[in-house]
């Protein structure tokens, strides 16, 4: 992930009305709310352009002006469209994600159709879960966009902050799952036969992960203690 201050043209804020990314010099403030030049409400209100931050701080009961209705995104629609593979994400303007969603759905269906034995039932169970995941994700994303937050192309329900520091769980999980399924598909190894080992191995993996996390945290505490002492 890109560090926030790496790019000098990083937008400073986003317009409440249209969601457009704004450079520091384009930001318009109106009663404590950021707008772009286009959607800046006419300053015909009796009170003159008060300094926004102090206004908000001075009057905690002051209600910010009602948010202008988002013309393009509604979470309800996003949820409904999200039930159709890929469409929810496209509705949210995340085209690549829509493609990936559609692709995953297709793969799931073909697996449930072609797979044999337990893999088949596994994928059959995965399909409804996945479809509802897509719907909820589209709902969530639409909600965040409505709130004026900027969403990344590959945003997800799970927060991916401080992804940089921790152990790379997701990539390794992807690779492991990919390798296992590839070997299974090529019939070089059978998932059915691995099933009895799956539970214990999973437990061990989670245990190792937690152990590493604790050790790291302990080491940090130790270091801080050391710093304080010196």
């Amino acid at each position: 992930m890109e560090p926030v201050n790496d790019n000098p043209r990083q937008p400073a804020a986003f317009c409440r009305a249209c969601g457009k990314a704004l450079m520091p010099d384009e930001v318009q403030n109106y009663q404590g709310t950021v707008y772009c030049l286009e959607h800046m409400p006419q300053a015909s209100a009796p009170q003159q352009q008060a300094p926004p931050v102090s206004d908000g701080a001075a009057n905690p009961y002051y209600q910010p002006p009602p948010m202008p209705p988002q013309s393009s995104t509604s979470p309800g629609w996003a949820f409904v469209l999200g039930l159709i593979p890929g469409v929810g994400a496209i509705y949210n303007g995340q085209y690549a994600k829509g493609f990936v969603h559609a692709l995953i759905t297709g793969v799931l269906f073909s697996l449930a159709d072609h797979g044999s034995g337990s893999t088949q039932t596994l994928f059959e169970m995965c399909i409804p879960v996945w479809i509802f995941y897509m719907a909820f994700e589209a709902y969530n994303t639409a909600k965040r966009r409505m709130m004026g937050e900027h969403v990344d192309e590959f945003s997800s329900i799970f927060p991916n902050s401080n992804l940089n520091t921790g152990f790379p769980v997701l990539p390794i999980l992807l690779i492991v799952v990919g390798v296992v399924f590839l070997l299974d598909n090529l019939q070089w190894l059978s998932l059915r036969a691995l099933k009895p080992y799956a539970g214990p191995v999973l437990m061990i993996a989670v245990g190792v992960f937690l152990l590493l996390a604790r050790l790291k945290a302990n080491a940090r505490i130790g270091q801080e203690a050391h710093h304080e002492r010196s």
């Binding site: 790379p168 997701l170 992807l174 990919g178 296992v180 590839l182 598909n185």
Partner: peptide
């Protein structure tokens, strides 16, 4: 339907390299 897991592997490796 046989080779799709290769996509997961590629995505995983790219994420690792990004990191």
């Amino acid at each position: 339907s046989t080779t799709w897991p290769a996509l997961l592997i590629v995505i995983g490796v790219m994420k690792l390299m990004e990191r």
